[in-house]
């Protein structure tokens, strides 16, 4: 009787070892991926959408007459309104567009509203007693922008039992601040459909 129990226990050992091994394999694994690869984890706004929009808008804007003219127009970035039902950091989109345009060397950017507070604080700080008066930045020397960039992102979401369809439309505009003319505008559309099963 004891022998039979021992035999049964011994027979269980490989099974327990297999379970332990399987549990070990199920441990989460972290690997680096391609930051510019296509991300389809969910159909919410993702990195591929952000990168595609920024790339498309930048390349289109580079063909705008005010930029082709080569006069290095000065642009300020205003808000991209998020009119979708989900949270989207629109600042991340405009930051990427700004970085790409700046790198291309055809546009200059003036300080925008979001960075104005820091800019003024730094100018005021340099007016303080600890700075060399001759080298300190004077007040009233900042350059104003000639153009302002603003836009919207909207979405239409439709869902039935096993299908969810999301349509995004990103619109960007470049306005002439002096005369109020729209100098350039373009759109990028994205459609993503998720089906279950």
């Amino acid at each position: 009787m004891i022998d039979s129990n021992r035999t049964r226990r011994l027979a269980l050992l490989p099974l327990l070892a297999a379970v332990a091994l399987a549990a070990g394999c199920a441990q989460e694994q972290t690997r680096y991926g391609d930051a510019r690869g296509i991300e389809t984890v969910t159909n919410q706004f993702g990195s591929t959408d952000l990168q595609m929009i920024a790339e498309s808008m930048t390349r289109s804007m580079l063909q705008a007459p005010v930029i082709i003219s080569g006069n290095l127009p000065i642009v300020t970035v205003q808000e991209v309104r998020n009119k979708t039902s989900e949270y989207i950091d629109t600042r991340a989109i405009t930051d990427t567009i700004r970085a790409e345009l700046q790198k291309g060397g055809k546009v200059r950017f003036a300080v925008d509203q979001a960075a104005m507070k820091q800019q003024i604080e730094e100018v005021q700080r340099q007016q303080g007693e600890f700075f060399d008066k001759e080298q300190a930045t004077e007040k009233g020397k900042m350059v104003g922008a000639q153009y302002r960039m603003e836009g919207n992102i909207t979405s239409i979401v439709k869902q039935v039992k096993d299908v969810k369809d999301v349509y995004y439309k990103f619109n960007l505009q470049l306005w002439n601040i002096r005369n109020g003319l729209l100098e350039w505008s373009d759109e990028k559309e994205i459609r993503k459909t998720t089906t279950k099963g």
């Binding site: 510019r36 690869g37 296509i38 591929t48 990168q51 595609m52 790339e55």
Partner: peptide, 9 residues
């Protein structure tokens, strides 16, 4: 001449 573009589906 430029960094890698994003893959566009």
């Amino acid at each position: 001449a430029w960094e890698e573009e994003v893959w566009k589906p």
